[in-house]
Nucleic acid binder design. Structure first.
Length: 890
RNA sequence: GGGCGCUUAGCUCAGUGGUGGAGCGCCGCCCUUACAAGGCGGAGGUCGGAGGUUCGAGCCCUCCAGCGCCCACCA
C-alpha cells in the first residue's frame, strides 16, 4: 500500500508476473474518492465540463448495458478532467414510476397483501422503504466499475429539490397553456392499469385473425360486410364507415344497420379515413376502442360505448351474455355467436398484424377512454428542438441520428403525462367542490378561485419521463439559480442508448429550451445495445447474460471496460462475449508486464527524453509511431469513436511498442553500456508513461497501478492529458525501420520454412541498397536479437552465394550460408512458391503499365510507384530463377 | 406505408478510390530471465448479387436479394 500514500517508490520489486485486478481496483477507487478527485467546484477558473448520468432505475441491478453506457461516459469525463476542465459527472437514480410500483406490488403479493387494500399512503411508505433498501445498491455497483462520478451530488428524481422542479415546471406549462386536461382515447395497459404515452407503446407483429362479418341493414334490404382483427370490439360498435368516393357503398350512406346483439341501430357514414382498398372497403366504427374510430366518431357524432373495464374484461355496457369475460375469451365468444347467427363471411388466420404492447410489462395495449387525462401540448415545444438539432447547437454522434430525431419531432403528438399510479410525482392540480381547478407549486389550503377549503388533489401521478426531462438542470439546482446551474449548464455531453432517444433525449431538449432557453447539452452520443456474439439479446433463458459484477471479480473492471470500448462502434448492436473480455484481460496483463520490463530498467521520476540529436533510429521510429497513436486516439475520442481509440491503443501498445520497441531495446538494456541502458530506458519510459495516460480513461486501474511506479506525480487521474508532439512524426525513420522489420520477418519465415529451431545459430549476410546500409549499421544488434541471428554481416559488394540460401528484402540481397545443413528440396519448394507469387504480381503490374489510359490519367506518382515495383519484382524473379537453376530444381 | 442501418476471413467487426486488416478461433514450432494471460510463423477472402462511373471500385451511383432496427390511426 506504499504507493497509495502518494509518491511511490519506483521500481518493480513488488510487481508480480501476473496482474491482479482484484487486489488493485477497489484500493485505488477508495483512494481516488478519499482524495476528492471526483468532486467538482464551480467557478474554479477552469472551463466547465459537465455530464449528467442517464439515471438508472432504482429497481435495477447493474447490467452490462449500464456498464457500457457509463464506461463511455467515464472515458469522456476522465479525458476532460486530465485536459484541465472543471469536470462534473453528476450521478443519480430514477424513481421509474411503473417499474418500481410493479415490483413493490409483486413483493406485496408474495406476502399475500393486495396493494389497493393497503391504501395509498401505506403503499407509498413501502415503496420508499424499498428505495432505501435497494436504491443505493446500484451506486455501489457503479463504483466497482471505476466510474468517476461526483457522489457528493448524487440525486434522485423524487428527492426534495427535484420534486420542486417538477412542480415549478408543471405549473409554468399549465399557466402558459401548454398543459391541458381532456377526455380522449389513450393507450391503456390493462395489467398495470394505467395510461401510457405513445412512446411507451411498443408495436410488435403478432399472428392474429382477420374476421369479416356482416351487418344487416335495419330495413332488411341488404347488408354490409366489415373486417376486424379484434372482433370483440364490435360490442361497442356505433357505426359503419365507408369512403365518400366509394361507389359500391354510396347508396348506403345515411342508412342504418342493426347490431345483432344490442339491437342498436348503427348509421352508415362516409369518412375520408377509410381506405376503400382494404378488406371490404367498409369499416366498423368503435369510437371507444380505436383511435381512428374515435376520430370518425367525433366527426359524425357517434356515441362512444366503452365495453372494456380497466382490466380489459367486458364491461356492463355490453350485452349481459358477454359481461365479465376476459378480452381474449370475449373474442372467441363473439366470433362463435356471430357464426351461430350466420353472419361470419370469412376468417383469415393466421393474420399478421401490428399490436401495441406495454414497454414495461409487455401486455397488449388497449386504446381506451379512461376519463380525464393530462396532456402536454407539444406544438410550441417541438419547433425549437428541431431548430437546435439542425442549426448545430446540438450535435449528434453518429450524425445520422439527427434525421431520426427531427423526423420524430415532426410527427410528435400531444403527450399524455398522467398515470393512474401511486408511485411518482403527484399532479399538482387541485379541484374544489365548486368545480374550480388550479395548479400550485406549494400545497394549497384553499381553492385559488373561490377560497373553498374543500379541495382535493388530482389522484394521478406524472409520467416518469416528465421528471426525467428536467434532469440536466433540475440536478444542478433549478429552479434556484445555483452556482452549479450557472456554471455547468448547458452540460457538455449526453451519452445514451438509442432506445431512449425519443422517450428521454428529445424531451430534455424540448424542456431545456423551454425552461432554460438553452439546449441541455451540446453533444449527444448515441450508442447501441449490448448483444451476445450471435447478435441475440442477453437473457437468462439463453444463458448468455454477462453480469458486470462477476466480470469485475474474475477479470477486473479494466477488462470489461476495454472490451466494451473496443466494441463500441457506432452501430446499433454491440456484440460482447466472455472471449472479448478474456482478450481485454490479457491486454491489461500485457500493460502490466510491459511496465515491469521498463520499470526494471528505470531509475524513476517523470521520464524525460534525451536530446533529439542523440536519438537512435529505433528511438525515432518509436516516437513517431507513438505520436501517430496519440493523434489517432485523441482525434477518435474527440469524435466519440471509442472503438477506434481502443483499437489504436491496443495495436500500438502490443504490436509496436511491445513486440518491436521493447524487443529492439533489449540489446541495449541488457548488454549495452550504462549510458546506452539509461538512454534506451528513458525513451521507453517516456513513451510508456504517456501511453498509460492515453489509456487511462479506458483502463483507469492498471494504468494507475503502473504509472505510480514512475514516481511522476500523485495520480494518473490528475495528470495532464499528453500534449501533442507533431515534430516526432518521422516518416523517414519509419520507412528505414520498416526495412529492418521486413528483414527480420523474412529471416524468421526462412527459419520456419526450414524448421530451424532458434537454437540453430544463423549467420546472415546482407548486401543492402545504398540507402539501406545505414539502417543495418545502426540496427545491427536489434536485428540480430529480433531475428535470433548469431551474426549479421553487412556486405560491401557481391559475394559468391554458393552454398547459401538467398532471400530478397526490399531489393537487398540476403544470404544465409547453410552449406550442408540446408534441405535442398525444402529450399526449392520455398523458392518456387515465392517465384510464383512474384511472377503473378509482376504480370499484374505489367498489364497495368501497358494500359495507356492508366499512364495518361493516373497521377504521376502512382505510375512511378508502379514502375519501381515492377522493376523490383523482375529483379527478384530473375534472382529466384537463377537460384532454382543452381539448385537443379528445374 | 415511410425512414435508417447492415451484408468483408470459421465467428464478431474495422476499412480514407491506388497490392484487402484486427480480435477471437484454427494449424505448426518454441516454457527465450516483462508477460505460456506469452513469443514466432502459417493457413484461411471472386469484399451479398447485377449493372454503371473511373486509368483504377470493398469504398462513389443505380437496381436486386437477404438481415436488423425505428416510425405510422395496415381496420
Amino acid at each position: 500500500m506504499r504507493e497509495v500514500e502518494g509518491r511511490a517508490a519506483p521500481g518493480r520489486a513488488d510487481m508480480s508476473p501476473a496482474y491482479d485486478p482484484l487486489a488493485t481496483e477497489a484500493r485505488w477507487y477508495a483512494e481516488w474518492e478519499r482524495r476528492g478527485y471526483f468532486g467538482a467546484r464551480p467557478n474554479s477558473g477552469r472551463p466547465p465540463f459537465c455530464v449528467v448520468i442517464p439515471p438508472p432505475n432504482i429497481t435495477g441491478r447493474l447490467h452490462v448495458g449500464h456498464a457500457l453506457n457509463n464506461t463511455l461516459q467515464d472515458i469522456v469525463v476522465r479525458r476532460r478532467r486530465m485536459q484541465g476542465y472543471e469536470t462534473l459527472w453528476l450521478p443519480g437514480t430514477d424513481h421509474a414510476g411503473i417499474a418500481t410500483q410493479v415490483v413493490v406490488q409483486r413483493e406485496l403479493a408474495r406476502e399475500g397483501v393486495d396493494w389497493r387494500a393497503l391504501g395509498r399512503e401505506a403503499f407509498l411508505e413501502r415503496v420508499w422503504a424499498w428505495k432505501e433498501r435497494y436504491g443505493g445498491e446500484i451506486v455501489e455497483q457503479l463504483k466497482a466499475l471505476g466510474f468517476s462520478c461526483d457522489w457528493s451530488r448524487l440525486r434522485f428524481t423524487m428527492d426534495e429539490g427535484l420534486a420542486r422542479a417538477v412542480r415549478v415546471a408543471f405549473v409554468r406549462l399549465y399557466e402558459d397553456g401548454l398543459i391541458y386536461r381532456g377526455e380522449r382515447i389513450i393507450n391503456w395497459c390493462p395489467r398495470d392499469t394505467t395510461a401510457l404515452s405513445d412512446s411507451e407503446v411498443e408495436h410488435r407483429e403478432v399472428e392474429g385473425e382477420l374476421v369479416t362479418f356482416r351487418y344487416e341493414l335495419a330495413d332488411g334490404s341488404g347488408h354490409i360486410d366489415v373486417a376486424t382483427t379484434r372482433v370483440e370490439t364490435m360490442l361497442g360498435d356505433t357505426g359503419v364507415a365507408v369512403h365518400p368516393d366509394d361507389s359500391r357503398y354510396r347508396h348506403l350512406v345515411g342508412r342504418r344497420v342493426r347490431h345483432p346483439f344490442t339491437g342498436r341501430l348503427l348509421p352508415v357514414v362516409a369518412d375520408e379515413a377509410v381506405d376503400p382498398d382494404f378488406g371490404t372497403g367498409a369499416v366498423k366504427v368503435t369510437p371507444a376502442h380505436d383511435p381512428t374510430d374515435f376520430e370518425i366518431g367525433q366527426r359524425h357524432g357517434l356515441e362512444a360505448v366503452n365495453i372494456l373495464t380497466a382490466e380489459a374484461t367486458i364491461s356492463d355496457a355490453a350485452p349481459e351474455e358477454f359481461r365479465g369475460l376476459d378480452r381474449y375469451a370475449a373474442r372467441k365468444r363473439v366470433l362463435h355467436r356471430l357464426e351461430e347467427l350466420g353472419l361470419v363471411v370469412k376468417v383469415e388466420r393466421p393474420y399478421l398484424h401490428s399490436v401495441g404492447h406495454c414497454y414495461r410489462c409487455g401486455a397488449e395495449i388497449e386504446p381506451w377512454i379512461s376519463g380525464q387525462q393530462w396532456f402536454v401540448a407539444v406544438d410550441r415545444l417541438k419547433g425549437p428542438a428541431k431548430e437546435a438539432a439542425l442549426d448545430g447547437r446540438l450535435s449528434f454522434f453518429p450524425a445520422r441520428w439527427v434525421h431520426a430525431f427531427t423526423q420524430w419531432l415532426d410527427d410528435l403528438r400531444d403527450w399524455n403525462i398522467s398515470r393512474q399510479l401511486w408511485w411518482g410525482h403527484r399532479i399538482p392540480v387541485w379541484y374544489c367542490r365548486d368545480g374550480h381547478e388550479f395548479a400550485a407549486v406549494e400545497d394549497p389550503e384553499a381553492c385559488r378561485v373561490c377560497g373553498s377549503r374543500e379541495i382535493e388533489q388530482d389522484p394521478d401521478v406524472l409520467d416518469t419521463w416528465f421528471s426525467s426531462q428536467l434532469w440536466p438542470f433540475s440536478t444542478l439546482g433549478w429552479p434556484e439559480r445555483t452556482e452549479d446551474l450557472e456554471f455547468f449548464y448547458p452540460t457538455s455531453v449526453l451519452v445514451t442508448g438509442y432506445e431512449i432517444l425519443y422517450l428521454w433525449v428529445a424531451r430534455m431538449v424540448m424542456s431545456g429550451l423551454y425552461f432554460m432557453g438553452e439546449v441541455p447539452f451540446r453533444d449527444v452520443v448515441i450508442h447501441g445495445l449490448v448483444r451476445d456474439p450471435q447478435g441475440r439479446k442477453m437473457s437468462k433463458s439463453l444463458g448468455n447474460v454477462i453480469d458486470p459484477l462477476d466480470v469485475v471479480r474474475t477479470h477486473g473492471a479494466d477488462a470489461l471496460r476495454f472490451a466494451l470500448a473496443r466494441q463500441a462502434t457506432g452501430s446499433q448492436e454491440i456484440p460482447l462475449g466472455m472471449e472479448y473480455i478474456e482478450a481485454a484481460r490479457r491486454f491489461a496483463n500485457k500493460v502490466w508486464n510491459a511496465g515491469r520490463l521498463v520499470l526494471s530498467t528505470y531509475e524513476g521520476g517523470a521520464p524525460e527524453l534525451p536530446p533529439p540529436e542523440r536519438w537512435t533510429l529505433t528511438d525515432r521510429w518509436l516516437l513517431s509511431r507513438h505520436q501517430a497513436c496519440f493523434e489517432e486516439v485523441d482525434r477518435a475520442l474527440e469524435e466519440y469513436r471509442f472503438s477506434d481509440a481502443a483499437q489504436a491503443l491496443h495495436r500500438f501498445f502490443w504490436s509496436e511498442f511491445a513486440d518491436w520497441g521493447l524487443e529492439a531495446a533489449k540489446p541495449r538494456l541488457y548488454e549495452g553500456s550504462e549510458g546506452e541502458r539509461r538512454h534506451a530506458s528513458s525513451v521507453l519510459a517516456w513513451v510508456l508513461e504517456r501511453t498509460l495516460r492515453l489509456l487511462h480513461p479506458i483502463m483507469p486501474f492498471v494504468t494507475e497501478e503502473v504509472w505510480q511506479r514512475f514516481g511522476a506525480g500523485p495520480s494518473i487521474m490528475v495528470a495532464p492529458w499528453p500534449e501533442p508532439h507533431p515534430e516526432h512524426r518521422d516518416l523517414e525513420a519509419e520507412a528505414r525501420f520498416g526495412f529492418a522489420e521486413a528483414l527480420v520477418a523474412e529471416v524468421r519465415r526462412f527459419r520456419k520454412a526450414h524448421g530451424l529451431a532458434d537454437r540453430v545459430p544463423l549467420t546472415v549476410r546482407v548486401l543492402p541498397l545504398d540507402h539501406q546500409r545505414s539502417v543495418l549499421l545502426e540496427l545491427g544488434a536489434e536485428i540480430q536479437r529480433l531475428a535470433t541471428v548469431a551474426s549479421l554481416e553487412v556486405l560491401e559488394g557481391p559475394v559468391d552465394p554458393a552454398g547459401s540460401a538467398r532471400l530478397s528484402v526490399d531489393g537487398a540481397q540476403v544470404l544465409v550460408p547453410l552449406a550442408g545443413v540446408l534441405d535442398v528440396e525444402v529450399e526449392r519448394a520455398r523458392i518456387r512458391r515465392r517465384l510464383e507469387e512474384v511472377e503473378a504480381e509482376a504480370a499484374r503490374s505489367e498489364r497495368k503499365l501497358a494500359n495507356e489510359q492508366f499512364l495518361a490519367r493516373a497521377p504521376a506518382e502512382v505510375v512511378e510507384r508502379e514502375r519501381e515495383k515492377l522493376a523490383a519484382l523482375k529483379e527478384e524473379a530473375a534472382a529466384l530463377a537463377a537460384q532454382l537453376e543452381e539448385l537443379g530444381g528445374g
